[in-house]
């Protein structure tokens, strides 16, 4: 097994771990963390694809690499917005939490 495949599998596992955290953790902040984990798993999949397509004297295909850079920035912007929302909510209610049925809400994924 070469390095690209190994990190690809790592990415796949991280996607799973992140998804699990996103579904089961009711605390919004932890959901945001899980989303970041999920995102980094996806980025590693891009990395695997870039690495195994190495050619023309490059260590990897630069197109997916550039896409990852764009996506990392977008994910950061999303995180910033989500955290600001959580904090405003905490300021308003004294405690950050989406209403209790939220976990079921995301779990709808499981039934589809």
């Amino acid at each position: 097994m070469n390095a690209a495949t190994l990190f690809g599998l790592c990415g796949a596992a991280l996607v799973g771990i992140g998804l699990y955290g996103l579904i089961t953790n009711p605390e919004p902040l932890r959901k945001i963390l899980a989303f970041n984990l999920l995102g980094s798993g996806v980025f590693l999949l891009f990395g695997m694809i870039a690495r195994r397509a190495a050619a023309a004297g490059l260590g990897g295909d630069p197109v997916p690499q550039a896409m990852v850079i764009t996506a990392i920035v977008v994910a950061f912007a999303a995180t910033a917005m989500a955290i600001a929302l959580v904090q405003r909510l905490a300021d308003e209610t004294g405690r950050a939490s989406i209403s209790s049925d939220s976990s079921d809400a995301v779990d709808g994924e499981g039934k589809s």
């Binding site: 990190f7 695997m48 870039a50 690499q65 990852v68 850079i69």
Partner: peptide, 8 residues
């Protein structure tokens, strides 16, 4: 770095 993507 191990994936040869230093920019990333």
């Amino acid at each position: 770095v191990r994936l040869h993507a230093v920019d990333v």
